[in-house]
Design a binder for these strands. Structure first.
Length: 1137
DNA sequence: TGATAGTCAATATC
DNA sequence: GATATTGACTATCA
């Protein structure tokens, strides 16, 4: 018994704005509070009981007779003592819990202050970011100012303004981000890649700079050390100086409080020095990289570049942060700067001239050859600028330990992963991530040049390369010389599970290991002392990961790339308000989820059908209709809109709450959260995760009605509202899965539908869009004469153009891929094969592929699709038609001979039907009667009974021997109805006559009774849930032991109690599109018991399912022994049904 | 390697 | 032309 309503809990005393920042604490506290309350209640009860007992003891004199006949008083004393003990225990418990509360309060205070600090920092950062949006312009302004000042300077110091001009030119071209000039000499900001590089030769630069160096005032340090700098990578003078320079430059943008003159001077000096050195180097060895590429890239050359890199690094970092916002405009800025910087590399590097051309290669592509050197020198500086939170994956490399570095590319996958998709690991990025900012910028540039911006989120192009993490340094080994691997693993697992981080993501980004390895490590961590140095590395990384507060957030954010990929199609996700600097790319944090979950759950108490967030007018309605930017007509998970939704739903709650539930802490949280951080609101995914129930059937029915009534097609609806294709919409509408069966992703469309339904202008908008499309089509027809009628109107309207404009322009709209079309016979064969073995092994697949003249891939796909679709067709609460795969691979083997024989039967039947002979019964060969499997098939009506036309059989057999003739077409039939029968055929003894035909191809494995087969559970374990309210997790833990919940597809939780209620009382699904026709043939033959299921449209399924249910009921007992808290969905459904 | 969920898009059907 | 079906594919997980 739990203390009842949350509403009865007084809000914690310090429920204020600050506390809102720490929702997890709040939840913990609340829970503890509840527990304390609970225990206290129990203590009181126990006390009462004791009192009662004492009274009884005092007031009664009853006794009982012992064996020896003596009367004895009941031992109330001991009972009282026990109760007293219990009371003590309970009171202790209460005390303990109260202590916990106090502790939590304390810790929360520190947490709050920390959060405040963090917030303040972020605010500052935002301010800085805002200041830097115009970075490029500032930069160029500065450049111009330099030019002006230089001219003045030179004019006063040297009448030879010509040299000043030259110098300026050299300067601007060699050291500043190259900015092309248009005819008017106006800077366009576009890098001039086309300009001949020889335009400014090094000799000329040298000349100019030599001239200038005589003219200019130089610092003594510079004079005396310029040469040394070129030799020594750690020049005493230049490094501090350049750091100073960098600082100054940064300050310029942050404060603008440095006198420009000074800045200019610094620039000039630095540039002159750099250029001087460059020339020196070049003179000494015109082709250094050719002979000593490592030295070249690693020492002098780099030294000079390094300083400029450092100066530009600030830009890079800030722009990268800006880029997090995925704002196209900012992307442009970034791109420009990247281009400029790349150009700078080109210009600044003498290698661009003539023979030394290839010397730039190690810079731009610091991969195979020079990767090591690049990394070694770059990490020195660039590491310092890397995001601190993820420094663990690019462990700080001490100068002294650098030489140990053996990593070839030294990429930092984690830092890659936190880049926005546009910057995520393409080849270049992955390899250059650890390189200098310039290299990174160059990579970005390359990427920008080679990819249209809309490709930013293409999932395939950004697939991270296998991570190669820098090795753990000796220092780190020393630091972690003894770790509790189990503990680490436990914590890591908690983190991964809590934040729904996949093992793959974690492995690739944090450990540099594959998912499989991670799984192994996490499942079976070896004790520290048993590990080799190498084996310890991952644990050290894990430890570092755990110690980095930000790491998990970044990882979560990077995992979110899924969402942007999807949502960016509408610009929705990108519309996320910025303010999420690199360090905090706005993952929906635990707190937020808890918050929203609490709220949603609370809301659901008050509303039967819908989660509160959905009970609202689509925020889109607040936008001017026909707004230029095409968007989904329901918010695609855009936080701002959701904010509205929360507000509205909150409002709704207040209005509609029948129970008048006052402001519970939860709703108060919500309010506060909303006020505090309007932009931190759940996305559609989060809403999906946080919504415990939603009647998909009702939603789809409503949608269908609405579409039908208004003559709106699935296509336009799908594209405009759901971002899905017509086919998908059709499936969704006709076969909506119950909410609890859907993964988070699968829930998304339903959320959108609901949002759309709540939009008061939903129809208007769609009509508007429809009209627009129609007119656009008309226009196109009249003007374009249908010249490029590539895909009818599919991708030619606004919305879909928007959706599909991702496809890069280049290349013809690839010719329509022709779909494989199975003939009826092929289908029949596949169905038969499926009936025999729904999980064919490779050999079987190959056999089938050969037999049917299809590719293995096609066969695999078919099986997969068939399994999935059968599953889908199973009504709610029904067991699926696909038995779980045999865990040990002992599925009754697929027997080619049996397959062929059965197939022959089927084909005969088909031919007969075609020839109008369907009434004539066919005999089956004698052995069939001895083969229970086949007999079962026959019994179920799969196979005809009666006398067989032997001549036909002969001909079919002939056909078979020469390969099946699968060209026939005839009746349709689903094997779905008989596969169960095959499975249910207890004690089958098939495949004994296997062998001669392709026998070698097919393994015959030890058999197992179907009972055992079915009783076995799926080999898949439920995956870690994603975006499930952590609060639920706890409850789940409690509940799951009762076996009433199951995690589906690793992403959603099925409340089987609900489920049972649902299927028994609530929703009886009536499929709008009956699928009966496909099962007609077999229905009459179904000998199973019909359990009077009132689902008309699903009768045949119910029959099957009931049948299977009956069959399986006995297996359930087998399973009941298992104490597995989480069961396979099939099993669960079976149990609940 | 192989399983599942989700989806697209070609094709079929109404 | 709208909708349904279905082969193919990606992403993710174990």
């Amino acid at each position: 018994m739990q203390p009842t309503a949350t509403a009865s809990i007084p809000p914690p005393a310090d429920m204020d704005l600050q506390a809102m920042q720490s929702m997890d604490w709040l939840f913990k506290k609340e829970r503890i509070y509840l527990l304390a309350q609970f225990w206290q209640q129990r203590a009181t009860l126990a006390e009462k009981e004791v009192t009662t007992l004492k009274e009884q003891l005092a007031g009664t004199n009853v006794g009982y007779e012992t064996k020896d006949g003596n009367m004895e008083k009941p031992n109330f004393e001991s009972e009282i003592a026990a109760k007293d003990k219990e009371i003590t225990h309970l009171l202790e418990e209460v005390q303990r819990l109260q202590l916990s509360i106090t502790k939590l309060q304390e810790s929360s205070m520190s947490q709050i202050s920390r959060l405040e600090d963090e917030l303040e920092q972020k605010r500052q950062h935002i301010v800085r970011l805002e200041n830097r949006i115009d970075l490029q312009r500032d930069y160029e302004d500065l450049k111009r100012e330099i030019g002006i000042l230089r001219s003045v300077n030179f004019s006063t110091n040297n009448p030879e303004s010509k040299s000043a001009e030259f110098l300026e030119r050299a300067r601007s071209e060699a050291s500043e981000p190259p900015v092309t000039q248009d005819n008017e000499g106006k800077e366009t900001g576009i890098p001039n890649f086309g300009r001949p590089e020889s335009d400014l030769t090094d000799e000329r630069i040298a000349h100019i700079l030599n001239e200038a160096s005589h003219i200019q005032m130089k610092t003594p340090c510079e004079d005396s050390h310029s040469n040394e700098d070129s030799k020594s990578p750690h020049g005493q003078c230049s490094s501090p100086f350049s750091r100073e320079l960098q600082k100054q430059k940064l300050k310029k943008y942050e404060n603008d409080d440095i006198p420009q003159e000074k800045v200019v001077k610094i620039y000039q000096e630095e540039l002159a020095k750099l250029m001087g050195k460059r020339i020196e180097d070049f003179r000494r060895d015109p082709f250094p990289g050719m002979f000593f590429p490592h030295l070249f890239s690693g020492a002098s050359m780099d030294r000079t570049q390094e300083e400029i890199r450092m100066a530009l690094d600030a830009y890079h970092r800030e722009l990268a942060k800006l880029n997090q916002c995925q704002n196209p405009a900012q992307m442009t800025n970034l791109g420009l700067l990247a281009l400029q910087q790349q150009a700078l590399v080109h210009h600044h590097n003498p290698s661009v001239n003539g023979g030394a051309q290839d010397l730039s290669l190690p810079k731009d592509k610091p991969k195979m050859v020079n990767g090591i050197e690049d990394k070694e020198k770059d990490c020195d500086d660039s590491v310092k600028h890397s995001g601190s939170a993820f420094s663990l994956v690019r462990p700080k490399i001490e100068p002294g330990t650098q030489s140990q570095t053996t990593s070839s590319t030294a990429s930092s996958p984690l830092s890659n992963s936190i880049l926005p998709p546009a910057m995520t690991p393409t080849d270049d990025f992955a390899t250059s991530a650890a390189a200098s900012p310039l290299q990174r910028m160059a990579s970005i540039t390359n990427s920008l040049i080679s990819q249209p911006p809309s490709h930013q989120h293409h999932p395939t192009s950004q697939r991270p390369l296998k991570a190669v993490l820098p090795p753990i340094t000796q220092q780190q080994f020393d630091m972690y010389n003894n770790l509790n691997t189990e503990d680490i693993v436990k914590k890591v697992k908690e983190q991964l599970s809590q934040y729904s981080i996949s093992q793959r993501l974690f492995g690739e980004n944090v450990l540099g290991l594959s998912q499989g390895s991670v799984s192994d490590l996490l499942a079976r961590p070896k004790p520290w002392h048993m590990l080799t140095q190498k084996g310890r590395e991952p644990f050290i990384r894990m430890k570092m990961f755990l110690e980095d507060d930000n790491a998990v957030h970044k990882l979560v954010a990077s995992q979110y790339k899924i969402a942007p990929e999807k949502l960016m199609r509408t610009g929705g996700y990108g519309g996320t308000p910025c303010g999420t600097p690199l360090g905090k790319p706005m993952p929906p944090t635990q707190k937020m989820l808890s918050e929203a979950a609490g709220f949603l759950n609370k809301m659901q108490e008050n509303q039967n059908l819908l989660p509160p967030s959905l009970q609202m007018v689509s925020p889109q309605s607040q936008m001017p209709p026909g707004h230029g930017q095409p968007m989904l007509l329901t918010p695609p998970g855009i936080p701002p809109q959701h904010t509205i939704s929360l507000q509205q739903s909150d409002h709704h709650m207040k209005k509609s709450s029948p129970h008048g539930i006052p402001h519970s802490p939860l709703s108060q949280h919500q309010n506060n959260l909303r006020n505090l951080n309007p932009h931190i609101s759940p996305s559609v995914y989060e809403m999906a995760a946080l919504t415990q129930d939603l009647d998909t059937q009702v939603i789809t029915t409503k949608i269908k009605e609405a579409l039908l009534a208004n003559n709106i097609g699935q296509k336009i609806f799908g594209e405009a509202v759901l971002g899905l294709s017509q086919g998908s919409v059709s499936e969704l509408l006709s076969k909506p899965k119950p909410w609890h069966m859907l993964s988070i992703k699968g829930r998304e469309p339903f959320i959108r539908m609901q949002l759309w339904l709540n939009d008061t202008h939903n129809i208007e908008r769609l009509q508007l869009l429809k009209n627009e499309r129609r007119e656009a089509n008309k226009r196109r027809r009249s003007t374009g004469a249908g010249a490029h009628d590539n895909s009818s109107d599919t991708s030619s309207n606004d919305t879909s153009e928007f959706y599909h404009s991702n496809s890069p322009g280049p290349g013809p709209p690839s010719a329509k891929k022709q779909r494989v079309l199975f003939s009826e016979e092929q289908k029949e064969a596949l169905r038969l094969a499926f009936a025999l073995d729904p999980y064919p092994n490779v050999a079987t697949i190959e056999f089938l592929a050969t037999e049917l003249g299809l590719s293995s891939r096609t066969i695999t796909n078919w099986f997969h699709n068939h399994r999935m679709r059968l599953k889908q067709q199973a009504p709610h609460g029904m067991p699926t038609d696909v038995p779980p795969r045999d865990q040990s691979g002992n599925q009754a083997p697929f027997d080619p001979v049996q397959f062929r024989l059965l197939l022959n039967q089927r084909l005969l039947e088909l031919s007969k039907e075609r020839m109008g002979l369907s009434g004539i019964p066919l005999p089956y060969p004698p052995y069939l009667s001895t083969n229970p499997n086949l007999a079962a098939l026959i019994g179920r009506g799969l196979l005809p009974s009666g006398d067989m036309d032997l001549s036909m059989l002969g001909s079919v057999v002939k056909e078979q021997m020469s390969g099946l003739d699968l060209s026939m077409t005839s009746l349709k039939r689903e094997p779905d109805d008989f596969e169960d029968d095959v499975e249910s055929n207890v004690g089958s003894e098939d495949s004994n006559m296997s062998g001669s035909l392709h026998g070698g191809d097919v393994k015959h494995e030890p058999k197992e009774t179907p009972l055992a087969q079915i009783a076995r559970s799926s080999r898949r374990k439920p995956a870690a849930p994603q975006w499930v309210n952590p609060e639920w997790q706890d409850e789940k833990e409690k509940q799951s032991s009762a076996g009433n919940e199951v995690i589906i597809n690793g992403v959603c939780v099925m409340q089987t109690e609900d489920y049972g209620r649902r299927s028994s009382e609530e929703t009886v699904r009536v499929e709008p599109t009956p699928v009966m026709d496909r099962f007609e043939d077999d229905q009459s033959d179904t000998s199973s018991v019909n359990n009077d299921n009132d689902n008309d449209a699903r009768v045949e399924h119910c029959e099957k399912d009931n049948e299977e249910d009956n069959k399986n009921s006995e297996f359930d007992n087998v399973h009941d022994d298992s104490d597995k808290p989480i069961k396979h969905e099939n099993e669960d459904e079976r149990w609940d049904y």
